[in-house]
Structure formats: C-alpha cells, structure tokens
Amino acid sequence: MHEKGWKTRLFSLVNNGLLLVVGLATIFPIYYTVILSFTDPVEYYQRSLILWPRVWTLDAYKHLLSNGLFVSSISVSVFLATIGTLLSLLVTGGMAYALSRKRLRFRKAMMIMVLLTFLFTPGLVPLYLVVRNLGLIDSVWSLILPSLTSAWYVLLMKGFFDSIPVSLEEAAMIDGSNDIGVFWRIILPLSLPALVAFGLFFAVGYWNTYFNALMFINDQKMWPLQVLLQNMLVDPTTMGSGNGGGFAFQVNRQVPTETLKMAAVVIATVPIMLVYPFLQKHFAKGAMVGSVKE
C-alpha cells in the first residue's frame, strides 16, 4: 500500500476513531459491572452514581464463594467445558468430514436429514422424555449428549473440510491408511485452527449450560455453575404469583443485593473469557469455516 496522501491519513483517523467509540461503548457497561461487584451494598444504595467505589470490598465474592456447592458446580462446569467440548469436536468433525467427501453414497440424504433439524425444533417435553428414557436424569451426560452438535456446526465444519484438497487424502490412502486414519492423522492436524475456533464455540455453550440443567438435573451437587448462581440470585418472591392468585408470598429469603449479582456475573463470565486470548492467534485462521472455496 503505497499511497500516503492526507486522504489516507484522514480515513485512518476517522476509522480508528469510530472503532474507539465502538470499543468504549462495549467496555463501559462491563466496567460498571466489575466496579459494582467490588462496591459495598450500603454505598451502592446511598450514592446515585458510582464510577469508582469509595471503599473496595470483596464481601460479595466471599459470600458467593462461601457456598458449599461452589466447588462442585465449578467442577461440573469445567468437566462440561472440557470433555463435552472434546466429544463435540469428535462427533461434529467425524460427521462433517464424512459429509464433505463427495463420493459418499447417501450423502445428500444425510445432508437433508441434518438440515431439516435446523428448522424443526423439538419441544421441551419430548426431549425430556427421551432424556429420561435413556436414564440420563441427574447425570452429567444429560448436559452433554443432547447438545453434542447441531446442524449449524456440522454445516460450518463441512464447509471447512470441503476446502481441503482431495489430493492430500489420496496420497495418504496410497500409503495404506483407511479413512479413519486419514481423518485422524492428516485432516485433524491440518484443521487445528478450525478446531480451536469450534472448540471455543462449544466451550462457551457448555459453560453457559443453564436451561437443560434446570430440566434434567435435580441433585444440587450436579448443578453447573450457572444454575447455582441463578438459584442464589433469583428473587424467589416473584414465584408463586403465577396462577395461584399470588397470595402465598411465603418467602423468607432476602432479595440479593445488586452488588452480589454483579459479582456473580463476573465469576460466571471471566473464566470463559480468559480462555479466549490464549486461542486468539489460532482464531484468525481458524474461523475460516466455509469461507475458503476452490
């Protein structure tokens, strides 16, 4: 890029300026969240606007971490985000790879079968029945198996595999590998950046598992983090007002303070956010998904 006129400089200035505005607009509310999580509730209620707390306090965090279930819920969530992600990658990858090989018989039938699920979403009750009949209620697998993959991911990953030249595969076949061998030794290593990108998608999904856990998990010790936090934070007083006419507000629990809620948000989102920078360099190349075509 050789031109160095004032036009270019002006363009860069405006462009960078706009991006700064976008960046600040996203960061400010988040800054506010973090700040509030370290503020004393009394100060929060007394002052109208807090941009910097007078006194920093860790009380909200201490309160959250003192919950006996915290450790178990963290381990459930970590299990989901690791094992679940790996399984998802394998299942999605295997299927997407098979579907990307054009010589495969019944490929289109399978494709249509996958695509249709994109549009027809099964209801909650039927899914519950399936999970129950498989005996998965109260098992950590009920949080992994029903969300292993989706038409969306299969499709994107297939797009990525489409871009890998068939010649590579043929060379390996001549060396005596079978399809699984090719997939494992050649395709997967080649796709590392894509796998990282997909891995992050899956990991975020598993980390944020909430609704399925509500439905399929009764045992508190099996709760993932998000459910635990929601349960600690939700204001139970709104409940029971549903159809019973709202008489029995029998709740003895305090509504959690705003600062406590913010601390919960920080705890729930920071770990998964921290994963991102480590993967960033793979990312640029990784998310090419489906974009590179012959």
């Binding site: 299942v91 495969l104 099964p122 209801g123 039927p126 899914l127 399936v130 292993l148 399809d179």
Partner: peptide, 30 residues
C-alpha cells in the same frame, strides 16, 4: 461403494445417532 467407504460411515455414525435420538425422536412428538 458403501463397502469402500465403510470407515466414512463409521465416522458419521455418532453424529447420525445423535441427530436421530435427540432431534428426530422428539420431533415425532410434533
């Protein structure tokens, strides 16, 4: 052809089973 690509089907199988059990079985309830 199918015999030639048997390993590809094996690769696709877990995904197929997933779609059938967790998508199509509930969908019949529509």
């Amino acid at each position: 052809d199918v015999a030639r690509d048997k390993y590809l089907y094996v690769l696709a199988l877990p995904g197929l089973i997933f779609f059938i059990i967790f998508k199509y079985v509930p969908i019949t309830n529509l």
